[in-house]
């Protein structure tokens, strides 16, 4: 907004979450978007985590301790019983693993509902400015807080950390990893908290789906897969394989993914103009957002789309990092990889 003044207060205040990495839409950026949908967990950085657990007093042989993904160890005199989830992604993984919190966030992006949590007796502590309602958190009287860790090693709640650590110590879980690591850490944490896995077969089913996908990928090694989403009316975004938990997981299973040139491990995606979409060197396209499929005339001209090698999964399973959701996802991918043929898309980008 140019300028100014007056007429458009909203523009300077600006909104919500973002779609970084993607191309700009000022609004898109500022506000939530897929960015949000996708990433919900990835807020703030900045302030370093000065405190660690503030109540680290405890110790004693009967105490409880846990070393988190930042390498910090939280020690408490007894096993914590009242847990609070400070972000959706980590919360969803832990809800799915059977942990019932006293307070949790749900920013309304469908990530938490995807694991069908039971909210009875749980305080909602999400604040629409993307933070946590500290008073409500304090009122829930938790003795352990769990938050997501950013790629740079800081907690998502960073800007509120000084206040939050006065309530209880924080454990950080990283969601920038493959599903095995994310759900694995969640299982380790719930185990140490004495929670029984609600569904013990889930991990086994996930592993079976993983091996099905691995086999399907191995059968056609030339097949190139692109995960894309709409950024704005002019461009689509190609997801960076080095950033997303989903893409890290499938790439570990051998899938050949459309690379993002120059993409660091913390960029979301590369924006590609619709003019260049038909030239993307991909054979199978995955439309990885909840938006409807695009109706741009160039979409129908894209070779993979014309060949019907296209999948639009149910997005709720994407950012809720549970064995069960990823089983659904890997199964769907395996089916589409099996039916797709390599060599449909152009050889290289022109």
């Amino acid at each position: 907004m140019p300028s100014a003044i007056h007429t458009r207060p909203r523009d300077t205040r600006s909104p919500l979450s973002a779609l970084p990495g993607a191309r700009p839409s000022r609004r898109g950026l500022l506000a939530g978007g897929l960015g949000a949908a996708a990433l919900l967990g990835l807020t703030a950085c900045g302030a370093d985590d000065s405190g660690g657990p503030s109540t680290a007093g405890g110790s004693g042989a009967a105490g409880w301790s846990f070393t988190d993904d930042r390498g910090r160890t939280v020690r408490l005199s007894r096993r914590p019983k009242r847990i609070a989830f400070l972000t959706d992604t980590v919360g969803a993984a832990l809800w799915a693993a059977g942990l019932h919190p006293v307070a949790a966030t749900d920013s309304g992006q469908g990530i938490v509902p995807a694991v069908k949590p039971d909210w009875s007796g749980v305080a909602k502590i999400y604040s629409a400015d993307k933070g946590v309602r500290i008073e409500a958190l304090a009122q829930a009287r938790p003795d352990l807080l769990i938050d997501a860790v950013q790629p740079d090693g800081t907690l998502q709640v960073a800007s509120q950390l000084p206040a939050v650590t006065k309530i209880a110590p924080v454990v950080g879980l990283s969601t920038y990893r493959s599903i095995e690591q994310i759900a694995g850490t969640a299982d380790r944490l719930t185990g140490s908290l004495g929670v029984r896995l609600a569904d013990t077969g889930a991990k086994t089913r996930y592993e079976e789906a993983g091996s099905r996908l691995r086999k399907a990928v191995a059968a056609d090694k030339e097949l190139r897969v692109g995960f894309v989403f709409g950024i704005d009316k002019n461009t689509i975004g190609v997801m960076n394989p080095k950033t997303w938990a989903v893409l890290k997981t499938v790439s570990a299973l051998g899938m050949r993914l459309l690379p993002v040139p120059g993409g660091a491990d913390n960029t979301y995606s590369q924006a590609v103009s619709w003019e260049n979409v038909p030239s993307l060197p991909v054979d199978l396209l995955v439309w990885a957002v909840s938006d409807p499929l695009p109706d741009n005339p160039l979409w129908k001209r894209t070779p993979a789309v014309r060949a019907g090698q296209l999948w639009k999964p149910d997005l709720s399973s994407w950012y809720a990092y549970s064995w069960e959701n990823f089983t659904v996802l890997l199964d769907g991918l395996a089916t589409h990889v099996q039916s797709a043929h390599a060599g449909v898309g152009p050889r290289t980008t022109s």
């Binding site: 909104p15 979450s17 609004r27 949000a36 949908a37």
Partner: peptide, 25 residues
């Protein structure tokens, strides 16, 4: 607008296609 888009990220997801003026598409 900001209240609705803050509270309903799904609405924002759609609105962002429209919220910045653009000639394409």
């Amino acid at each position: 607008i900001s209240v609705v888009t803050l509270l309903r990220p799904d609405v924002f997801d759609q609105f962002r296609f429209w919220g910045v003026g653009s000639l394409g598409g």
